[in-house]
Nucleic acid binder design. Structure first.
Lengths: 132, 132
DNA sequence: GTATTTGCAAATGATTTGCAGTGCT
DNA sequence: AGCACTGCAAATCATTTGCAAATAC
């Protein structure tokens, strides 16, 4: 994945910290602020939590990344992809992407409401096979 | 709605504060902590934010109420009902219940995954007719 | 009467802001 | 060169905890 291009396309300057954040996010798939901070400190030992938050917020504003808010657990961040659903194990905490047509479901839901749809969040929580 | 019965069924003691919280939550449909605190202070001027949090947490633990975490906005709380979806207007902030079979969707999603499903959150964000 | 809840104050945790210095283009 | 980004410290905002007094059952 070309992180430099991703940043450029979103009018964000390329910095080593940002590249590191995107790389870790991509590897993890879904990652929380704490996990990200702990991991990135291995590369940039003096990185500050303020910088991490500023960058996360900048990337959220341009929709380069997306915040996934599941019930009961802390938010995770992922690089934006085509709309999909999530499956979360509340025992081990694993997040899994599910390729499912959420846009179609959203339209069914908003059908008679007159709403203009922007975003759909579909998260199923449960226990994964390993944790049962 | 019988709030005393609701509390009893969940093994929670009946207090005026709890009855007030449930009443406001029921009237509002979906309410944030700040809104709830501002409203309940009109009835119990000396209620503390700590009490509010303790009660919200107690009711969440028994599942008497549910936390709705939508993208971009602060969490809202609702009295637990049959599973349903939510439609949120990101302009005026209004939350709307949509009676939609989320359990069926959840099963479709978790179908081949081997997950045991506990909970499903389906939230569609957009602009409501009034705000367009 | 006993256990739980309340309200207060203080503690903790999470996130944001201001600013001086540095780095990107 | 000029503007954006970084890192630090401090500020702010959100939530939790400990404890004494009050209340539920």
């Amino acid at each position: 994945m070309n992180y430099e291009l991703l940043l450029k396309q979103n009018n964000l300057k390329i910095t080593p910290q940002r590249l590191g954040i995107l790389q870790l996010m991509h590897e993890a798939g879904h990652i929380s602020i704490e996990e990200l901070f702990a991991s990135i400190k291995k590369q940039f030992s003096s990185i500050s939590l303020a910088t991490l938050y500023k960058n996360i917020n900048a990337m959220l504003e341009t929709s380069l990344i997306k915040e996934v808010k599941a019930p009961e657990v802390k938010a995770r961040y992922e690089i934006s992809k085509t709309p999909h659903a999530h499956l979360v194990c509340h025992v081990c905490g694993e997040f899994k992407d599910i390729h499912f047509d959420v846009v179609h479901v959203a339209h069914t839901i908003a059908d008679t409401s007159g709403y203009t749809i922007n975003d759909t969040s579909l998260i199923v929580s449960g226990t994964c096979p390993k944790c049962q």
